[in-house]
Design a protein around this nucleic acid. Structure first.
Length: 468
RNA sequence: GGCGACGUGGUGAAGUGGCUUAACACGGAGGUCUGCAAAACCUCUAUUCAGCGGUUCGAAUCCGCUCGUCGCCUCCA
């Protein structure tokens, strides 16, 4: 069995085969850093994270590029409002994004290019488009892509150009183009706006061309996978394809993957709607970052996902169940011969897990396989069927699957000496059946953020989620 | 107006022609274990897959219609 992915452009689900055998090159449209990303944005970034993690789990080398759009109208506007430079503003929000991403255990991309650091590459790409007759200039120094020069335009979005409701959402055109459907590659200089002096003149890049230039700069003119939210299909990705392929004459991307929206209150989460939630705010209010990650990744990426307090609570409970199992396995001690059925159970779970992910990243089915294993292991723990070595092997197997999911607790760090002493004192009190003293110490440890539970193997402890 | 997606239990959600009289998680009810607590385990919790009609030996799964929800239609992940 191999990984099969559903490509937005062709609509087909087909086996994934990288252009270079054994090396997958992936580009993900990253955030525009004019403010903090919301968890709907993060759903699509975590979907890309899951993809990259699974490709690596499958033994592929992966080069993952996720850009920062650090120049656009909103950034200019915000910087002006705050009387600061766009560099100061975008640095701040990039730092915030990285903190949020780390909290959610998003893999750090191999390259995180910034648009403003690729101005020359962008200018060169535009110059090529001009030379090939796909672009034209307007009086203000802007350069547009001429859609009529590219017959395949719009195929990704399956849009009929004659049916577009031109004018409905298009603001009064600031830049004056030949055809309403043409899009800006380069925006001519405007008083007060940042501009760069380049071989194609002064100005700043349009949005779509950035992603073409940055992906090609780091992954080559043709690469394997391009991800983003469904709302980027049109116009962003449609335009990327047109300008990239018009410039190079080569196929741009092998597989397009698009993540469905996160919803809140039945509607797409969007600043415009006002129904957004932010990572930092949620963590501030005590939400466990792993529960949030679980809530955002636990549904198939092409399925709209409703976010709510209840879904977050359910995710937290599911994560707790995993934590309990991990704690049980770590505390487990038994000198017996071991469970002859264990290897088959572990292998079966792994096979089911992989089959699910191979099927276009069916994470719900993969989680079902994981939780089937959880119940199976708990049963064996209760029955004292495992040996100490079995418990270690089971834990190792869980950690292997977790290379993809990244939802298990971190291996526990050392306890501070004082807490360790309290834990030891409690053990002694329990051996003396001094229950009041035992309960007192349990409460005191809980106040220090350490939850203690008693098992046949003695005490086991874990750090209380959200308290650390 | 155009294009597209979706509608499965109290909730989220797998399953897309027979292996499923429907995974898994959350929630609920009862039980076991236990100094207490917690966890865990066991049993139960959809004769049914928006509605109607059709195809088929057989449909949640294919086709048609109806109803409903959501998304995209120029810079939103």
């Amino acid at each position: 069995m191999t990984l099969r992915l559903q490509d937005t452009l062709s609509g087909e689900t087909r086996p994934f085969e990288p252009l270079d055998a054994g090396h997958a090159r992936v580009y993900s449209c990253g955030p525009t850093v004019y403010g903090p990303a919301h968890i709907g944005n993060f759903r699509s970034f975590l979907f890309a994270d899951l993809l990259v993690r699974y490709l690596r789990y499958r033994g592929l080398r992966v080069t993952w590029v996720m850009n920062f759009t650090d120049i656009d109208d909103r950034i200019i506007e915000r910087a002006r409002d705050a009387s600061e430079t766009i560099g100061v503003l975008t640095d701040r929000w990039i730092a915030q994004f990285r903190a949020d991403a780390a909290a959610l255990r998003m893999t750090t991309p191999d390259v995180s290019p910034r648009a403003t650091e690729h101005i020359d590459a962008i200018a060169r790409l535009i110059a090529t488009l001009e030379a090939r007759g796909h672009a034209y200039r307007t009086e203000d120094g802007s350069i547009f892509f001429r859609i009529s020069s590219w017959p395949a335009y719009g195929r990704l979005a399956r849009l009929d150009p004659t049916q577009l409701r031109v004018g409905e959402r298009v603001e009064a055109d600031d830049y004056g183009k030949d055809d309403a459907r043409d899009f800006a590659l380069w925006k001519g200089p405007k008083a007060g706006d940042p501009a760069w002096e380049t071989a194609i003149g002064a100005g700043r890049p349009g949005w779509h061309i950035e992603c073409s230039a940055m992906s090609m700069a780091h992954l080559g003119e043709s690469f394997d996978i391009h991800t983003g939210g469904v709302d980027l299909i049109f116009p962003h990705h449609v335009d990327e394809i047109a300008q990239s392929e018009a410039a190079t004459g080569k196929p741009f991307v092998g597989t397009w993957l698009h993540c469905a929206h996160l919803r809140l209150g039945g509607e797409k989460m969007a600043r415009r709607v006002g129904n957004i939630a932010r990572v930092a705010d949620l963590l501030e209010s005590g939400v466990s970052p792993r529960a949030l990650r679980y809530a955002l990744i636990s549904v198939h990426y092409r399925q709209a996902l409703e976010y709510s307090e209840a879904s977050l609570a359910a995710a937290g409970a599911a994560v707790d169940r995993l934590d309990s199992l991990v704690a049980s396995l770590m505390a487990y001690r038994n000198d017996g011969d071991g469970d002859p059925g264990l290897p088959a159970a572990l292998d079966g779970a792994r096979a089911a897990f992989e089959a699910a992910f191979d099927d276009d990243l069916n994470v719900s089915a993969a989680l079902a396989a994981l939780f089937d294993l959880v119940r199976e292991l708990n049963r064996r723990i209760d029955a004292r069927a495992l040996s100490s070595n079995d418990a270690r092997a089971a834990l190792d197997a869980l950690r292997v699957l977790d290379r993809v999911l990244a939802i298990l607790p971190d291996p526990p760090s050392e306890l501070d000496p004082e807490s360790a002493a309290m834990l030891d004192a409690r053990r002694i009190a329990r051996e003396a059946r001094e229950w009041a003293r035992s309960d007192e110490l349990r409460d005191a440890l809980l106040e220090r953020g350490i939850t203690v539970e008693d098992t046949r193997d003695g005490q086991r402890w874990h750090r209380t989620e959200g308290a650390s």
